[in-house]
């Protein structure tokens, strides 16, 4: 595919990122309070790159994904600042123009698969529609063939029954796979997956990941995977972003984040995953839980749990600083 950089990226002399998010800030406004759910989040995804966002519940991962694809519930969520570019075109804010980017551009698989599936159509009808959008010719039963192959590859044994079912007749795992099939069949440029493998069996999980990586190999699709499972990130990602309390606290290549995390939170996340036998001693993790977003501590939001806390951490929020080529960290330890 010839890559034609869009108007905006030409102007600013940017490389041909597929997705570029700049300074995205999202507030949740309820009648009595205002919660900053995302604060100044910037990220980019190159063509054919697999990027994962890791973080615990409440870190804003899903909100970020919803903001990118433009399906935030407004109210209570309001995008306060920020710009999003996809394939050289500004998709947010659009100044009232209609910009088409969903479908073959960005496609999203939600954490709750019932959201992606229409309850009044059978899975077959929905997948055939996806195949049509994906540009698969109708003649010779080509579409039917493609959807059956995709489902078989996702380890669905009784393809025919699944195709004839309505979403409510399927189990959670089946729905999840149908939703992933729907995204894959459309052959988009970017697939956003929100916790794609939670609740699925190990071997099925691996199959799904394999299918997504195949898609990248074939048509250079980029993947943005949102997960809390560091092992998935370690095995899939080219680059990893770590989020905490609505902020990106560190980003870098897979090797950077997994083998040599800089931010104390990334380190704690990595050390929380048990890797050895019983004899390997207790896991290195500090007490405490992620903060309540409506009552964030002053300064760095991680400071109450941080083993290396200094005076400055309690007062000021550390900025996200570039260190090295593709590495950023927001921590006062690395301010020098």
């Amino acid at each position: 595919m010839i890559n034609i950089p869009g108007v905006i990226s030409q102007e600013k002399g940017l490389k041909s990122e597929l997705l570029l998010v700049k300074g995205l800030t999202v507030d949740f406004e309820t009648f009595d309070k205002k919660i900053e759910v995302l604060k100044d989040v910037s990220l980019k995804i190159e063509r054919g790159e697999v990027v994962t966002i890791v973080g615990e519940s409440g870190s804003g991962k899903s909100t970020l994904a919803q903001a990118i694809i433009g399906v935030l519930d407004t109210p209570p969520a309001f995008v306060k600042r920020g710009e999003i570019y996809f394939d050289g075109v500004r998709i947010f804010p659009t100044d009232g123009k209609r910009v088409k980017f969903r479908g073959t551009g960005i496609n999203m698989v939600f954490q709750e698969p019932l959201v992606s599936l229409n309850p009044v159509y059978t899975i077959r009808k929905q997948l055939l529609e996806a195949a049509e959008i994906g540009g698969i010719p109708e003649k010779g039963g080509e579409r039917e063939k493609v959807i059956k192959n995709t489902l078989t590859e996702l380890m669905i044994r009784d393809v025919e029954r699944v195709l004839n079912s309505y979403p409510h007749q399927l189990s959670g795992g089946m729905r999840q796979r149908a939703a992933i099939a729907m995204a894959v069949i459309q052959r988009p440029k970017l697939v956003i997956l929100d916790e794609p493998t939670t609740g699925l069996d190990l071997i099925v999980q691996r199959k799904i990941m394999g299918l997504l990586l195949n898609l990248r190999r074939e048509i250079n699709t980029s993947l943005l995977i949102i997960t809390h499972d560091l092992a998935v990130a370690a095995n899939m990602a080219d680059r990893i972003y770590v989020m905490y309390a609505g902020r990106i606290v560190e980003s870098g290549t897979r090797g950077d984040i997994i083998k040599d995390p800089l931010h104390p939170y990334s380190l704690m996340l990595r050390d929380s995953v048990p890797t050895g036998y019983k004899e390997s001693g207790p896991l290195k993790v500090t007490e405490g839980a992620p903060p309540d977003m409506s009552a964030l501590p002053t300064g760095c939001p991680f400071h109450p749990r941080c083993p290396n806390v200094m005076d400055i951490c309690r007062k000021n929020v550390p900025p996200l600083k570039n260190i090295g080529d593709v590495r950023e960290v927001a921590c006062w330890l690395y301010e020098k």
């Binding site: 691996r206 394999g210 990586l213 092992a231 370690a234 899939m236 995953v273």
Partner: peptide
Amino acid sequence: ITLETENKFD
């Protein structure tokens, strides 16, 4: 998959 394995999805 663990933190040590790499790209075991093939």
